[in-house]
């Protein structure tokens, strides 16, 4: 059986001051763009794709039951 993690694969030591997380920035930007696009998409799917939501009538029904 091999050990769970192999620490020997570390090739260099990066300290607090040298580390610049640009990859994180890139990834979070992609996530933000996806979220923003989905938000726009939601408007079309949820609102233009459905009839108006009738809330009041059903609430009375629940209230009666």
């Amino acid at each position: 059986m091999c050990p769970m993690t192999d620490e020997s694969e570390q090739r260099r030591e990066i300290g607090h001051d040298e580390y610049d997380p640009v990859g994180t920035l890139a990834l979070i930007t992609v996530y933000f763009l996806i979220i923003a696009l989905l938000w726009v998409f939601m408007y079309f799917v949820e609102f233009l794709g459905n009839e108006p939501t009738v809330v009041g009538t059903f609430l009375t029904v629940v209230g009666l039951a």
Binding site: T5, D6, E9, E13, Y19, P21, G23, T24, L27, I28
Partner: peptide, 28 residues
């Protein structure tokens, strides 16, 4: 999301990862 991804990236770069997205391939 930010802190955890930045910590993973730190690991990837110490393992020799490079680039904006290339570091992802250096993860274990």
């Amino acid at each position: 999301a930010f802190t955890v991804v930045a910590s993973m990236e730190h690991g990837a770069r110490q393992r020799g990862g490079e680039g904006y997205f290339g570091w992802l391939t250096a993860l274990p």
